[in-house]
């Protein structure tokens, strides 16, 4: 119902546009460092672990590049990035909107005649759907770069082997799958916290609970939808 209200036609597009840009900056630019850091180490650890696991087997070393690339694109970049963003962005949205509810900002807007569900949620959804897939794409690239930087200089495999692996069996459909996941996860991690924050009642304990619930539910739904998307797009 809240989602339906939030899609109610915006009165002033320029105000909504300004709000959307503000949230794009918060969600996108504000998350670049944490996403980059996590992506780098995910790539690094994946490469090191696979190098260890393939050690002593007949599987060629260049397979590490191929495995890192596909694991990153299909699963790690969208899922881990969005789980992290559910914590960072999701809790922020729940607390911000919940705080506005408690400080009567939402009531003040309602009394002015503003469709608060639309004004508070729609720009965040648009910002999330735009910025989060870009963050996931960035995470995928940084992750692969992290795998290279963490493994090649210490001799786990050579640069040529890694680059050869990266180019093997490339299927653009995997990139499509990554974007599908990132869009669905973005929608989940924006709307669930927005709902929790919008409907918060009571004081600071309830606000804290709403923020926690926002992160927990977002994570659970991201993982559930990850499974169903995998089923839908791969079988």
């Amino acid at each position: 119902m809240l989602l339906g209200q939030s899609l109610g036609g915006p009165r002033k597009l320029n105000i909504y546009f300004r709000e959307t840009i503000r949230h794009m900056m918060d969600i996108g630019i504000g998350s670049v460092i944490i996403v980059a850091l996590i992506a780098f180490f995910i790539g690094a650890v994946t490469a090191v672990q696979f190098s260890y696991q393939l050690g002593g087997t007949l599987i060629p070393r260049y397979y590490i590049g191929y495995i890192v690339r596909d694991m990153t694109i299909i699963e790690l970049a969208p899922t881990i990035t969005c789980l992290v963003l559910a914590g960072k962005v999701g809790s922020n949205i729940a607390s911000e909107i919940g705080g506005m509810r408690q400080k009567e900002h939402i009531d003040a807007m309602e009394i002015m005649g503003v469709n608060t569900a639309s004004f508070l949620i729609l720009p965040r959804v648009i910002a999330g759907l735009t910025m989060i897939p870009l963050l996931v794409f960035m995470a995928a690239i940084i992750s692969i770069f992290g795998a290279f930087v963490a493994s090649v200089p210490i001799g786990l495999f050579s640069a040529d082997e890694f680059i050869k692996g990266l180019g093997m069996f490339y299927d653009p459909y995997n990139v499509f799958m990554m974007f599908v996941k990132s869009v669905v996860f973005a929608f989940i991690l924006i709307t669930i916290p927005a709902y929790q924050g919008y409907n918060v009642r009571g004081g600071s304990i309830e606000l804290g609970n709403a923020s926690t619930a926002a992160v927990v539910f977002s994570n659970v739904f991201i993982l559930l939808s990850d499974y169903f998307i995998a089923l839908l797009l791969t079988t």
Partner: peptide
């Protein structure tokens, strides 16, 4: 119609409710 009517309403809140 409520939103339209509310454009004719002004309200001062106890804690002012100014957007921070």
């Amino acid at each position: 119609q409520i939103r339209k009517l509310r454009m004719e309403v002004g309200m001062l809140f106890q804690a002012s409710a100014l957007f921070d």
